Measured scan of single mutants.
Amino acid sequence: MTEYKLVVVGAGGVGKSALTIQLIQNHFVDEYDPTIEDSYRKQVVIDGETCLLDILDTAGQEEYSAMRDQYMRTGEGFLCVFAINNTKSFEDIHHYREQIKRVKDSEDVPMVLVGNKCDLPSRTVDTKQAQDLARSYGIPFIETSAKTRQGVDDAFYTLVREIRKHKEKMSKDGKKKKKKSKTKCVIM
């Protein structure tokens, strides 16, 4: 069974824990209790493949930012979460993405942009803004509501699919490099 290491990042209060708990335990946590770091595991079937999701729910508070490099190193894919009623959390996505790329030393890291709290009427981040940002990053965008469960499975499952595509691409690139290195030079 394939294991996928997913990391949920975003500013404090955007609903990272609520999304994760909704996926794992099928219930909505409405009281806000700032996370330092929590880890969850769940076995699911995605596109006919049974897999184990190892999900790291991270601290959004700035005082825990020193811990970010460590979990970013171990993560295979990242859910970059903002709240649709919090423009600052949307603007912060850029910083999370840049930090992930720096730590992973790669421009090509599996990510999904997630606009959470889409059940709320007080939207300050337009869907088109988020779609445009995701398009500019070359990553999928999904709106979710941890409260109603809308888009929750889709967000995590899409990230797994992005990781699969990335692994497939990397193995193809690896095979191309191996083929090239088999060419021999004969000096007579």
Rank of each mutant, 00 (worst) to 15 (best):
K177T: 15
Y4R: 06
H95Y: 10
M188L: 07
P121R: 11
T35K: 00
C80Y: 14
G151S: 09
R164I: 13
S122D: 13
D38R: 00
L79T: 03
K16C: 02
F156G: 02
S122P: 09
D69A: 05
L113H: 07
D57M: 00
T158A: 12
I142C: 14
K5V: 04
L53S: 05
V114G: 01
V45Q: 14
G174E: 15
V8M: 13
G174D: 13
H166L: 12
A134L: 11
R97E: 07
Q131F: 13
V186N: 15
C118M: 13
D153T: 06
S65E: 11
E168R: 11
A130P: 12
T50D: 01
G13Y: 06
D57L: 00
E49I: 04
D153W: 02
D126T: 09
K165G: 14
R41A: 04
D153G: 06
K169V: 05
D38F: 00
P121S: 13
H166Q: 12
L6Q: 02
I100H: 08
K101G: 12
Q61H: 13
E168F: 04
V109S: 08
L133V: 11
F82Y: 11
I84H: 14
R164G: 07
S39Y: 01
G15F: 15
G13K: 08
Y40A: 02
G75F: 15
A18W: 00
V103E: 14
E37N: 00
L52M: 06
G60L: 05
G115K: 02
Q61F: 15
E3W: 04
G48H: 11
L19Y: 03
N86V: 04
Q61N: 04
G15V: 07
K180V: 04
C80D: 03
P140S: 15
G12L: 03
K42E: 02
V9C: 05
D105W: 01
I46C: 02
K5E: 13
L159K: 04
T35P: 00
A130Q: 07
V44E: 01
G174A: 06
G13E: 15
P140H: 04
E3R: 02
F156A: 10
K104L: 14
L56Y: 02
D173Y: 07
S145G: 09
G77S: 07
Q43H: 03
D126G: 09
N116Y: 02
L23K: 03
V125P: 09
A11Y: 07
P34T: 01
S136D: 14
L6N: 14
R68T: 15
V125T: 10
S106M: 14
V8T: 14
Y137N: 12
D126E: 10
Q129L: 11
S17L: 02
F78T: 01
L159N: 04
E98N: 11
T58L: 01
G13W: 14
V112K: 04
L159D: 01
T2C: 07
K16F: 04
T58I: 05
E162H: 14
Y64H: 07
E98K: 03
I46K: 04
K176W: 05
I187D: 15
Q61R: 01
D69V: 01
V9N: 01
E107A: 10
I55K: 00
A155H: 01
F156L: 08
L23H: 15
V160N: 08
T74M: 14
V152K: 03
R135I: 14
N26S: 12
I24Q: 14
I84W: 13
I100W: 03
K165R: 12
K42V: 08
Y40V: 02
D173F: 15
L133I: 10
K128Q: 11
E62R: 03
A66H: 06
A11T: 12
F82M: 10
L23N: 15
M72H: 14
N26A: 11
L6W: 02
V112I: 11
V112N: 01
D154M: 09
A66D: 05
G151Y: 13
S17M: 01
T58F: 15
V7L: 04
K172R: 04
D92N: 07
P121I: 09
D154I: 07
R73P: 02
L6C: 05
V125S: 09
G13F: 12
K167S: 12
E76P: 01
A66Y: 04
M170R: 15
K104T: 13
L133G: 07
K5M: 14
